[in-house]
Design a binder for these strands. Structure first.
Ligand SMILES: [Fe+3]
Ligand SMILES: [Fe+3]
Length: 965
DNA sequence: AACAAAAAAAAA
């Protein structure tokens, strides 16, 4: 049956009254669509999506419990798409457009005017009405109410939120909204006629009896919901499915035409990667002759090959062992086994997502089994500012005129961003996506159109990078999402360099939907080894395997240093006497600025350059800073590529945590504040990262041994007292545990000498991480009392975080047969756009981002002067929307306001004052770069006052705020 | 009355 047939069969089966029911209307053009037409469009679209677009593993999941498997799955899906708007065949809906209502009245469907129906109408929105009608119809066909509700809720939820029981009761209590006045049964006859015709057109009549006892698993129900929503959205796109201007408009081939114009990309049909690990990796990543596969990579592919069912693979290995490549190859194999049609890689930040996006696209380009072109998506809020993403060709065509041109243009295949597969809710439906972990965690947040987010991940393999980097709050979401992924049989690859054993166990338990602390998972926590692979398949026994390391090591001499800026300055003077580059990592921006100030004083006129790096810069400056760091301290190839050079004179970079993240930069000497031990290790990774001459002989003589000075605590106390700001950021307990783990490690090394010792990377990573995060006491006995107290209050605090996270947390999958009624109830909706009403997948206090602009002395508004590449000082219009080009610069001039301006007792005043700057002309829809953004306008000296504070911005030091009182 | 980095915000 072709995709165009559904509407024809419907209209043939309906009488004049049934055909008179309308579904869509456009006030501007006066165009409209009858319900039967929208039913046919939606069904045809759903059938096409089932055949050509859904990943095999999604089809399998939907069909799992149905007696005839996928044939039943397709029938059920197409039928639900067809009947999704049956609730429009009610007085409550039909009365809304008087002209169309009048046509229905003349067919005997009596109803009052919209005004006569009054406010009650909102008690029976058409989704909910549809659920009630469908459930009643199924009951008439011999179904139990319970069985009917699991199907009905798909219709009830087609606008994103399945109704609650109470809502359904309220609607039922107003019979006249659904069935008109008690004196007529015309409405019920038409509703039955439409549903009967739909059942015949979808050939489901003969299957209804066999389906009635089925208990649909919730994953199937959610995926059916999502498919109905996607079909409806496509069928409701008026440029694909134009409205009619007259009754009886001929529309032959309308569905096939629309689907051709939509031009969804071809799927990836993954094949098992064949051959040796060496060959597979070399082919996927275009390795040159000399590159050898690493032991972890080889083992990861072997572990994936050993899993004969979809499962979770945890890869723990040090930075620089090719974990990402290992994950992608494992993902390819797992995709072929499970029938995935794509891959999502989740990362902690937008910056790492951007970097991953290019790698993912390269990898996807090398895959076999991609027919036509595949769609790629960069999933985070600032993707539009990323040139790698926006530079991609766009596939498909929004207007019919473009179809021919595009069909010619995209014949070459390859990767493209698809015009329809973009935006917050649809973008993740693309085949290959890289993005922030938030995009994955949203699948665990009760919110509108949640089913779409589930469909987006249910068809893929999911890779979770930097799994150690998430806090208790986010982990609460992650665990719930993993439970759903396990239920969807979505293969998952988890990556980490520093994963606490307890967390490893929790991840595996979550995915397998096992109880916390299930004894089968003891081995996952107790196993020792690094690198380490863990594989888990729901219902099976988890496997663990230690892997040989690849051999690169760095010995780091560790020394404790008092927390005194002057002492630090004196020390650096000595250390850098013979040249060299030092990195000083501070835990707060305040300390970064304070340290930089002292050092600049000290080194003024000596040729020693001091610079800062932190996140309190506008995006464009931050990107420049990162580039400058890479051009000076990156690996030789990168330095050459960026046209930079490693400084000859001594250099000091004072940085916040931005330096511990993804940047591949290398210093001769490291000074760091005491931080949680995984972060200390991460920072140590910036030390002698690249080989510079035999035995590091190209480094200054005194700095050829890697050395790390740890400060940011009063080491004289027992236990050491971490800096107050550090405690605020990281909490006291993890800092004390870090100090204790280091102490235990170093004193074991050299027999009780607590002045310092050696940490070997990567050999000591596992021991330090497990020591710091394990359950056992660690550190000197005199510290234990303090540690015990810190542990207790930390436990309470973390439990509170987990509790907060649960406020909008989705439940794990319920028993099969439980309908989706109330699935996202008490959720956040998406109507509340005020900064405060938004529930989050991250636990953060208030924050405000502003666009930093400048006003010249002559009163003209401009972009910030001094921005690189000629972006600075460009005039901005105030009475109309800025151009595309300048708007983008303004949007990339965002900076987050520091704490003093967003403290709970200040933020309201700050927002009030910033709202004074809003430009009405910039709120227009053609001002999409800047609409809704708060503007902070600086004077010609880059200063301003805000809420009683002095605000100052420099390209050198970023945003500084001082109390102006 | 103290604070990293981090994310995000349109449907049928
Ligand atoms: Fe609808
Ligand atoms: Fe619809």
């Amino acid at each position: 049956m072709s995709y165009d047939e559904y509407a024809r069969e419907l209209s043939a089966a309906l009488g004049a009254a049934g055909r008179s029911v309308w579904a869509k209307h456009d006030w501007d053009s006066g165009g409209w669509l009858p319900l039967w037409r929208h039913m046919g469009d939606s069904a045809g679209t759903a059938a096409y999506l089932w055949d050509e677009w859904l990943a095999p593993q999604v089809r399998a999941r939907i069909s799992e419990a149905l007696p005839r498997g996928e044939a039943d799955g397709r029938r059920l899906a197409v039928w639900l798409a067809m009947v999704h708007d049956i609730g429009k065949a009610t007085p409550a809906f039909a009365c809304q457009v008087e002209g169309l209502a009048e046509a229905m009245r003349s067919q005997g469907l009596k109803m009052g005017s919209a005004a006569q129906m009054g406010k009650d109408r909102s008690l029976a929105p058409h989704g909910m009405a549809g659920q009630l009608l469908l459930v009643a119809w199924l009951q008439d066909n011999g179904w139990s109410k319970r069985a009917a509700q699991q199907i009905g809720a798909v219709v009830g939820g087609h606008h994103g939120v399945p109704p609650s029981d109470a809502d359904l009761q309220d609607a039922l209590a107003h019979r006249e909204l659904l069935y008109g006045s008690a004196s007529t049964d015309a409405w019920q006859r038409v509703q039955r006629e439409l549903l009967d015709a739909a059942a015949s057109a979808c050939r489901i009549r003969e299957h209804l009896d066999a389906w009635s006892p089925v208990k649909l698993p919730q994953p199937s129900q959610v995926l059916l919901s999502a498919l109905v929503i996607v079909s409806d959205w496509i069928a409701s796109n008026a440029s694909l499915y134009p409205y009619f201007q007259r009754t009886g408009t001929a529309a032959d081939g309308r569905v096939s035409r629309a689907l051709k114009q939509l031009g969804l990309p071809g799927r990836w049909r993954p094949r098992l990667p064949q051959g040796s690990a060496q060959d597979v990796f070399a082919a996927r990543f275009s390795w040159d002759e000399g590159t050898r596969v690493r032991p972890v990579q080889e083992a990861a592919l072997a572990a994936a090959r050993a899993m004969d069912e979809p499962g979770m693979l945890v890869i723990e290995a040090p930075m620089g062992e090719g974990k990402t490549e290992a994950a992608l190859v494992a993902a390819e194999h797992m995709a072929a086994v499970s029938g995935a049609g794509g891959c999502f890689v989740a990362l902690p930040t937008m910056a790492t997502s951007n970097a991953m996006f290019s790698r993912l696209a390269d990898w996807a380009g090398s895959l076999e089994g991609i027919d036509g072109s595949a769609s790629v998506f960069l999933a985070h809020s600032k993707a539009a500012l990323n040139d790698d993403y926006t530079g991609l060709p766009f596939a498909g065509a929004e207007s019919a005129d473009d179809v021919e041109r595009d069909a010619a243009g995209s014949r070459g295949g390859g990767l493209a961003a698809h015009w329809w597969l973009r935006g917050r809710k649809k973008g993740m439906l693309a085949d290959f996506a890289a993005g922030t972990i938030d995009q994955l965690l949203f699948a665990g947040l009760k919110s509108r159109h949640l089913a779409l987010r589930h469909l987006a991940v249910a068809g893929k393999v999911v890779v979770i990078d930097e799994a150690h980097a998430y806090d208790t709050y986010m982990n609460t979401y992650l665990d719930t999402v993993l439970a759903w992924l396990g239920a969807y049989r979505v293969p998952v690859v988890v990556l980490s360099a520093t994963l606490p054993a307890r967390r490893r166990r929790e991840l595996a338990e979550a995915y397998c939907q096992a109880r916390r602390g299930s004894p089968e998972f003891d081995a996952v926590e107790k196993v020792q080894g690094y690198p380490l692979l863990t594989s888990a398949v729901p219902g099976g026994a988890p496997q663990v395997e230690a892997v040989e390391a690849s051999g690169r090591r760095t010995e780091v001499q560790v020394e404790y240093l008092d927390d005194d800026p002057d002492a630090l300055a004196r020390r650096l003077e000595t250390e850098l006497a013979g040249g060299g580059c030092a990195l000083v990592v501070r835990n707060t921006v305040k300390r970064v600025h304070a340290t930089a100030r002292v050092l600049r004083d000290r080194f003024a006129g000596t040729g020693v350059e001091v610079s800062v790096a932190h996140a309190r810069f506008v995006d464009l400056d931050r990107a420049d800073k990162d580039r400058e760091l890479l051009a000076a301290f990156g690996p030789p190839a990168t330095v050459a590529e960026l046209g930079g050079h490693r400084p000859q004179n001594p250099r000091i970079v004072v940085a916040s945590q931005v330096a511990e993240q993804s940047l591949d930069i290398d210093f001769d000497l490291l000074v760091t504040d005491l931080a949680p031990v995984d972060l200390v290790l991460q920072r140590m990774g910036r030390l002698h990262r690249h080989l510079r001459g035999q035995g590091q002989s190209e480094r200054p003589e005194g700095l050829r041994t890697a050395r790390c000075l740890i400060t940011g605590a009063d080491w004289g106390q027992q236990p050491p007292e971490p800096d107050a700001g550090s405690q605020f950021v990281y909490r006291r307990y993890p800092l004390l545990r870090a100090a204790a783990a280091l102490d235990a490690h170093l004193s074991a090394e050299d027999g009780g000498n607590t002045i310092g010792g050696t940490v070997v990377l990567p050999d000591d990573i596992d021991r330090l991480v497990q020591g710091a995060y394990g359950p056992d006491p660690i550190g000197p006995s005199e510290w234990q009392e303090e540690l015990g107290q810190a542990r207790e209050s930390h436990g309470i605090e973390q439990a509170a975080k987990a509790d907060q996270a649960r406020a909008f947390l989705l439940n794990p999958p319920a028993k099969p047969g439980r309908s989706l009624i109330g699935w996202v109830n008490a959720g956040v909706g998406d109507t509340d756009d005020s900064p405060r009403g938004r529930a989050q997948v991250r636990n953060a206090g208030e924050s405000l981002e502003v666009l930093l602009l400048q006003r010249r002395r002559d009163g003209v508004l401009t972009t910030l002067s001094g921005l690189g590449e000629g972006r600075g000082g460009i005039e901005l219009p105030t009475d109309f929307a800025p151009s595309e080009e300048v708007g983008r610069i303004a949007a990339a001039s965002a900076v987050r306001l520091p704490f003093p301006l967003v403290a709970p007792w200040v933020i309201d005043r700050v927002i009030d004052e910033l709202e004074q700057n809003l430009l009405p002309a910039w709120q227009d829809k053609d001002a999409h770069w800047v609409a809704g953004e708060l503007l902070l306008v600086l004077d010609e000296d880059c200063r301003t006052r805000l809420a009683g504070f002095d605000v100052h911005y420099t390209h050198q030091d970023g945003l500084e705020v001082t109390d102006g009182h």
